[in-house]
């Protein structure tokens, strides 16, 4: 266990080596926030309320979504996401050095990822505070809601990691996962509620989506944050997240056992 903790620490330290780049990233991040703001402003031009959601709530939702993306590693605002990293390591053969460690490979990667997560969380604090002032995003109604959001966000992170891990393993079979990786990210972007909240989707589409884990990644924590999903309903949504984690975890272990045999190491 200690070993994984240390990996996590080193991974965090490694990120710190690049803290000099942060300022320029911040500029890019706030520019993207501004674009999102303008986009929703245009859509809300003639109404104060769409589907029971005020402009104010919508902006909070969308900017929190962008901040979340930076934290849980999926759109790589601050990060290279796992699947990309892995496919390049498989292609160059560098993966050999990772697999050579007497550790559980999935936990090894998780510890890596978790160290980066910690870094992302810290970096996101000033972004969040600035966003409160610039875009007037609001805080949750109560500490209880904030706590629920934090739990749900942690679950989102685990889900993202598991999906990312499985996509990564595709490179063991084909040495390439860019196609699958890009496709997955597109699907998640569209169907998780990260850009367009799911309540804007037609009923049938939301029905179909309830059979997939995507909504659990963005839609659930963000809806909890803005108060669209409340107390019991929130707990229910979080249990669904946990179930998805269980399913994906089992799937990823199975896929890992199969993929290990498939690895074709490249180079020297």
């Amino acid at each position: 266990m200690r070993a994984y903790l240390e990996i996590c620490k080193k991974s965090f330290q490694e990120r710190m080596a690049y803290r000099g780049e942060l300022l320029i990233r911040f500029v890019g991040i706030f520019m993207s926030f501004y674009l999102l703001y303008m986009f929703w402003k245009a859509l809300y031009a003639n109404s104060t309320d769409v589907q029971g959601i005020s402009f104010h709530s919508m902006i909070t939702y969308t900017i929190m979504s962008a901040i979340m993306g930076g934290i849980i590693n999926i759109f790589g605002i601050l990060n290279v996401y796992l699947a990309y990293w892995m496919s390049s390591r498989v292609r160059t053969g560098e993966i050999v050095m990772d697999m050579m460690k007497p550790t559980d490979f999935q936990l090894y990667l998780f510890s890596h990822s978790f160290g980066r997560l910690l870094f992302n969380v810290i970096v996101s604090v000033p972004i969040f505070i600035l966003a409160i002032f610039i875009f007037k995003i609001y805080l949750p109604d109560s500490l209880g809601v904030l706590a629920l959001f934090a739990v749900s966000l942690s679950m989102s992170y685990l889900l993202t990691f598991l999906i990312d891990f499985m996509v990564s393993l595709v490179s063991f079979w084909t040495t390439q996962n860019q196609g699958v990786g890009g496709f997955t990210r597109l699907i998640i972007a569209l169907l998780s509620g990260s850009f367009i909240p799911l309540w804007f989707f037609p009923d049938w589409a939301r029905n179909v989506l309830s059979y997939f884990p995507f909504a659990s990644i963005y839609h659930v924590p963000l809806s909890i944050y803005i108060g669209k999903i409340k107390s019991i309903e929130g707990l229910y949504a979080i249990s669904l997240q946990i179930i998805w984690i269980g399913v994906l975890f089992a799937g990823s272990r199975l896929l890992w056992l199969k993929s290990r045999r498939k690895l074709m190491t490249h180079g020297g």
Binding site: I7, Q13, E14, A17, Y18, K101
Partner: peptide
Amino acid sequence: WWDLPLIESFELLRHIYR
């Protein structure tokens, strides 16, 4: 670890191999 001082990699290996 490419970005860290050499000693950090040793420290990590020490824990990995107990």
